[in-house]
């Protein structure tokens, strides 16, 4: 499994790792029951603090996507809910792709689209609903 963390973006490294593991499960790159590298191994491989890996694993365990077995590491645990979530994400991605395509047709540059997304994501949910 290959993960790539970007230290310079505005997102905590543990969240990046969580997303990449989730993504790998959604796309089927990681299967039910598959074992992930140990905290120390993955930390050394990615050259990040072991706390980063430990936090990502423990949050994913909390979400039910990983199962931590004492002494033997982390295992992927795909439940039905994860599958339906995977479908939802697939649909959302298609809609996003359409939207981005339209914005590009309108002449917006990718960098401008990215910044617009950043700004809108920071909008509190309630205000968006009001508009």
């Amino acid at each position: 499994m290959f993960f790539k963390l970007t230290p310079t973006t505005g997102q905590p490294l543990y969240l990046q790792l969580m997303q990449q593991i989730r993504h790998a499960v959604e796309t089927g790159a990681l299967r039910d029951g598959e074992q992930l590298p140990g905290i120390r191994t993955l930390a050394e491989e990615l050259v990040v603090s072991p706390n980063t890996v430990a936090k990502a694993y423990s949050e994913l365990e909390h979400e039910g996507l990983l199962e931590m077995r004492h002494g033997s590491g982390a295992f992927v645990c795909v439940k039905r809910r994860t599958r339906s979530l995977a479908d939802q994400v697939q649909i959302a991605r298609r809609r996003l792709r359409d939207l981005i395509e339209r914005l590009r047709e309108d002449g917006l540059l990718d960098e401008e689209i990215r910044r617009a997304f950043e700004a809108e994501l920071l909008y509190p949910a309630e205000i968006v609903r009001k508009r």
Binding site: I39, R40, A43, E44, V47, V48, S49, P50, N51
Partner: peptide
């Protein structure tokens, strides 16, 4: 790079 890896290993 070796230093950083060693630091991570020590931290672990």
């Amino acid at each position: 790079e070796q230093l950083l890896q060693t630091l991570v290993a020590q931290s672990a």
